[in-house]
Every structure is written in structure tokens, then in C-alpha cells.
Design a protein around this nucleic acid. Structure first.
Lengths: 350, 350
DNA sequence: TTGAAAGCGCTAACAC
DNA sequence: GTGTTAGCGCTTTCAA
């Protein structure tokens, strides 16, 4: 690796001249600058960031901490963030937690060691105290999920609104028994989404029993599949299903396809998020699309802004941004048909 | 940020003692070690990697350079690599090229500046000369794609074999006019896959005209959709389609769904890769599944191995590993039915 | 307009 | 078993 010293030696100038020329210092003559830059180019000089950082120049690395990038929600986030910070000469260090506290702690430790400039984190349900402590010294933003003890800056979606919209759509169609398959309430997003589901039902003036619930770990597709089968095997099964996470939606779709469920005839389905494939599933999945890309971009821009205005780092004013989802009506939802069939059947039985 | 000096001051020992204690140097007494480690813990000490690197300690950062992480092929790669290197105390820096040379160059520059230990790269078709030069100084492995001028170490899939398998499956079913929708041949994988398609046809003793081809930019879903429509609007349209990239497969599936194509009755389809959603598309997509996770893991392990055996860095023995795909037969392929219909139609016309 | 020198936090060679 | 010291590549005073 060529250093400033190599360039200096080659041009018979001092290292400081080289440094200044490279930094476009006004005190350096145009000619010297030109020669320095030219030989720097020739030698393929790339400034050593480690050395720079030792001089107090802030790092340009942003840590991104997510449960699993394979989850398309987070790969979209990774893409958008990478794109955003790249335009401002920053880099992204990718860390996966697998939704485990210990892994998360280790990742944050690594990020602290690398002296990252900032962190965008989708925290695990209850982060390790050390994570909280370490992050106190690092500018960071919470994404999607929000836990206490971390930065009050948060970017997420309007979780409550998303499931409320989805549920209301089903209620408007006339469904009176709706199943909800979502994430457990230990994670705030899980609680919010369940709340949206429940509120939609009570707002429609219906008793709580109209909503049946099956919760599980948010990123496990198998739970989506299992839950669907459980709910539909009830004595009085729901006539419609609302899902509360992308992964569970995928699970539900897979199970419904395998079991050859008649959608929307025997059961309506509203999904969560809009992935490639949702549009061609069965009759087309009615779902709530999320502005993930915009969300992550906003999050990145905000963080970079925080980093620039270093002086104001200390102002701990909470900032929370919740982006709304958009209902996309396709073929998987319709008026409940089954309600009449049992009625007829019971009459016939008499 | 607490430094070794802080710890030293607090314990009235020298910085070197602290450094040695932290490094578990055998010369340090157990007691001193204990005290040092304890106060290090107390003060929340995290070693400054920048300073360490200046002392020649190798970086623990691996650069991952891919076209776009949203492409599930690459998000799987990102996941597997992150996982693999994490288990050996390394981190992944994520870089996207968008398949553009200039962006790629910039990313590699950044990676060089951060002094990454190594790089896993999915190169653009013809990388900038500076990329080649910069990478000469950095241990790296090519993933999936392979270009000349970079490291001879490459991990990819058996591109030729994948499309050959797919095509042969269709030939076995009796198809005699097959369309191929894939990536352009400027990228080696594109050329290989097209070759596999063509070879399968000639191996079956059929003339080249049996294969009709429509190529485009590999990661553009729209091209998949457009190409499908183009091929099927021919006077004598193919009775089956083979796709050559994941993204194009997605495009083909979307278009086929929109246009309500009768698959496999009027046309059979074999996909590339196996994404969530492929199984529930139409009658279920017959496709060639790829061992992406294993591929990326192998790639990571190999790179880390190279980094450990530093002395052997110079041995430029080529290493190429091509993993085979697996044909998964679902409902989107069947014997060609249409061949008889035109025959009848022409007779009726006379 | 340029040079000399100090120092960021850490490691390692050389004392003792 | 521990302390002293030099130096990694860069930026930034302070001199000239």
C-alpha cells in the first residue's frame, strides 16, 4: 500500500505538503497540488482510514443490525440504507442477530471496536444491558422495532394502523369471525399489530370473541402454517385470516396452497407486506404494502444528519416516525360465503 | 472511550502491562491479569481497532460486493457469509454495485481505504482496470460470476449444467421447440447458461432452430416478462420456456400470471433457482434449486483460510468450485399438447 | 508556500 | 514480571 510518505519521497517534498495537497489546502500552490495528485493517482494511493481515525477524523462506517437479511423486509432495508449512506461517502457494516440477545451483544461490541460512526438497529425484544451501555456512546436509530433503554429516535411503520386497516377491510366485507396470526407481544410491533386487529373489531361494535388469535415468533414461517391449520380446525372456524408479519404470511400462503384451501370462497386472507409472489399466489393476495424502502432511506438520512450536526448529538428529543401501509385489494378476500352453508346444513339436519 | 492508558493510570501500572494482560501474555502474573481485566470491564473498555491496525494487526473486515442485496440470491449469500465470518470473529461490509463499473470501483476504493482483510466479489462484466489493480493487493474470491484479471479463486454454480438439466427435462417430455430467456453473454454465467441450453438441444440430436433465445440484462425482471411475450407471439411459438436467472424467472412468472397463460397446457416452464413463492405459483414451478447457502459458506471458509495461511497468499493456483443444481419437478411442465392442435387446424383449413 | 515535529492508541522489541 | 520506548500513517500545530 502506498502512503503519503511514498508520494513525498518521489516528489522530494514533505509528507505534510502531500497531506495538504490531497486535502486541497488553499496554502498549497496549484502546481504542487497537481503533481501530488497525479503521482498519488499513478501509485494508486488510497488513504488509510485507520490512521485517519486515530487523528480524530470520524469513521464513515454505519452498522446495520437486523435479525436476518434473508427476510426480504430487511434485505430491502439493507439495500436502501447502503444506497443512502453511499451517496454520502459512508459504508454499511452488516450484522445479523438471529433475534438472539447474545449475538446482538457481540455484534454491538464488534461495531464499537470498529469505531462505527453510527448504528441502525432492529433490536431484539430485550437487549442485553451492555448493549444499552455500549450504544449510549454511539449515535444510533431504532428501526421498525422499538425498545426502551436505547435511543429515542425511531423509524417504523404504523403497526397498529396496518392490521387495523386489514381487519377493517374484512369487517366491511361482512366477516364476523376473523383469525389473526401474528408475532408475540413481547416485541412492541407484535403488541401494536395485535392492538390494531382488536381495535378494528371493537370499533365495529363487535364482541372480542369475533377475533381469534394465534401468536408465535415473528420470523418463523412454520408458525404461520401451523397457526392457519389450528385456527381452521376449530369448531367454528374464522371465515377470514389476517397476518401480522411477512414471514407468517409466507407460511400461511404455503400451507393454504398445500392444503388446497378455497380462497376466498371458504376463507379470506389479508397478508402483511407485499413481496414478489404475493400477487400471483392463488387468486392474488390482498395485502397491506409497506413503504420499506422509504422508511430505511429516511432512517439513514436522519442518522447521517445527526452525525453531521455533531454538536447537537446530545439533544435527546425523542423522534418517532411511523409510516402508514397501503391496502392492496386483490383476489384473496371476498364476502363470507360459509355462514349460510352451516345454516342450511343445520336446517336440513332437523 | 476508555483506552489502555486509562486502565493503566487507574491501576498504577504501565500501558504495556495492560496491553499484555489483555492479550493474555504468559509473562504477566495471574493477579495483575485479573485486576486489569476487571477494571477494563468496569470501564467498558473496547480495544480501538484503528490503532491496532496501525500496528499491523490484520483487519477483521471482509468486504462483500454484490449487484443488489434485494435479489434473494445475494441476500442468501450475505446471510451465509455474515454467519460464516462471524463465527471466526470477522465482520462483513456490504457493498452494492448496481452492476455498474464506476460504482464498483468506488466500492473497492472504499474497501481498500478501510483496509479490509479480504473481499468476496460478484464482479461486474468488465471491471475497471483500477479495480483489478486495487484487488491485487487484497486477498479476494470471485463469487458466482468470474472475470479475468481478478483472483483465479472462484466459487460458483455449474451454470452450464443447470440450464442443461432444465432443458433436457423438457426434451425428455417431448418438447421440440424451446425458448430460453436469460442473461446476456457478456457475463460469463450468461454465456455458460446459454451454452448449457444449446448443448442439451444438440445432444438430443436436434437442430439449433429448436431453441429460440431472448437475452437481456440478467437482473431485470421486466426483461423476463417482455421476453416471454415476445417469444409466445412468434408464428410458431415454443411449447416450453427455460429461464436463465432468478430475476427473469420472477418476471416470466408475473407475466404468465397476468396474461393467464395456461401452464403447462399451452406452455411448460422451468425456472432458475427456488425462491419462496415458486412452489405456489400456478401449478407449482418446476425449477432448478441452487445450493446458494452452501456456496457462500464454502466461499467464506475458503477466504478465511487464505487469510490465516498468510504465507501462502502468494500461491496463485487457480481454484474453481462449481456446485450443481437440483431439478425440482412440480406442475409447470408436461408433455407438449399444442403440437397436435396446429396440425388439426391446418388440415381443417385445407 | 512549504517543512519539522508531535501525537492519536496500540503493540513489540528491548531494557531491567 | 513489569517498565520504557519507538513507530504504524495521518493531520495539525508551530516554525521558517
Amino acid at each position: 500500500m502506498t502512503t503519503t510518505r511514498d508520494i513525498a519521497a518521489r516528489l522530494n517534498v514533505s509528507v505534510s505538503t502531500v497531506g495538504r495537497a490531497l486535502a486541497d489546502d488553499p496554502r498549497i500552490s496549484a502546481e504542487t497540488k497537481f503533481r501530488v495528485k497525479q503521482t498519488a493517482d499513478e501509485l494508486g494511493y488510497v488513504a488509510n482510514r485507520a490512521a485517519r481515525m486515530m487523528r480524530g477524523v470520524p469513521s464513515t462506517v454505519i452498522g446495520l443490525v437486523v435479525p436476518d437479511v434473508r427476510n426480504s423486509f430487511y434485505s430491502t432495508v439493507a439495500h436502501a440504507l447502503t444506497e443512502t449512506v453511499r451517496s454520502r461517502d459512508h459504508q454499511v457494516m452488516l450484522c445479523e442477530t438471529g433475534d438472539e440477545r447474545e449475538t446482538e451483544l457481540r455484534q454491538i461490541r464488534d461495531l464499537a471496536a470498529v469505531q462505527v460512526a453510527g448504528v441502525v438497529i432492529v433490536p431484539t425484544p430485550r437487549p442485553h444491558p451492555d448493549v444499552r451501555r455500549l450504544l449510549q456512546a454511539i449515535p444510533h436509530v431504532q428501526l421498525n422495532r422499538r425498545v426502551s433503554g436505547l435511543s429515542p429516535h425511531w423509524f417504523g411503520i404504523d403497526d397498529h394502523g396496518v392490521t387495523r386497516t386489514a381487519t377493517r377491510h374484512l369487517l366491511d366485507l361482512g366477516h364476523r369471525k376473523i383469525g389473526y396470526i401474528g408475532g408475540t407481544v413481547d416485541i412492541r410491533t407484535g403488541a401494536e399489530r395485535l392492538g390494531g386487529f382488536r381495535d378494528a373489531i371493537s370499533e365495529a361494535g363487535l364482541p372480542v370473541e369475533c377475533g381469534v388469535v394465534d401468536l408465535g415468533p415473528p420470523s418463523q414461517t412454520t408458525h404461520g402454517a401451523d397457526a392457519l391449520r389450528r385456527l381452521l380446525s376449530w369448531a367454528e372456524p374464522p371465515t377470514a385470516i389476517v397476518t401480522g408479519t411477512v414471514q407468517m404470511t409466507v407460511g400461511v400462503l404455503a400451507a393454504a396452497h398445500e392444503d388446497r384451501l378455497a380462497v376466498p370462497r371458504s376463507v379470506s386472507v389479508v397478508g402483511f407486506g407485499d413481496e414478489p409472489g404475493f400477487s400471483w399466489w392463488g387468486p392474488g393476495l390482498t395485502t397491506v404494502a409497506l413503504p420499506i424502502h422509504e422508511l430505511a432511506t429516511a432512517c439513514g438520512v436522519w442518522l447521517l444528519h445527526q452525525l453531521e450536526t455533531t454538536g447537537a448529538t446530545a439533544h435527546p428529543t425523542a423522534f418517532a416516525s411511523a409510516s402508514p401501509g397501503t391496502l392492496i385489494v386483490r383476489g384473496s378476500t371476498a364476502e363470507p360465503a360459509v355462514v349460510r352453508r352451516p345454516a342450511r346444513a343445520s336446517r336440513a339436519a332437523r
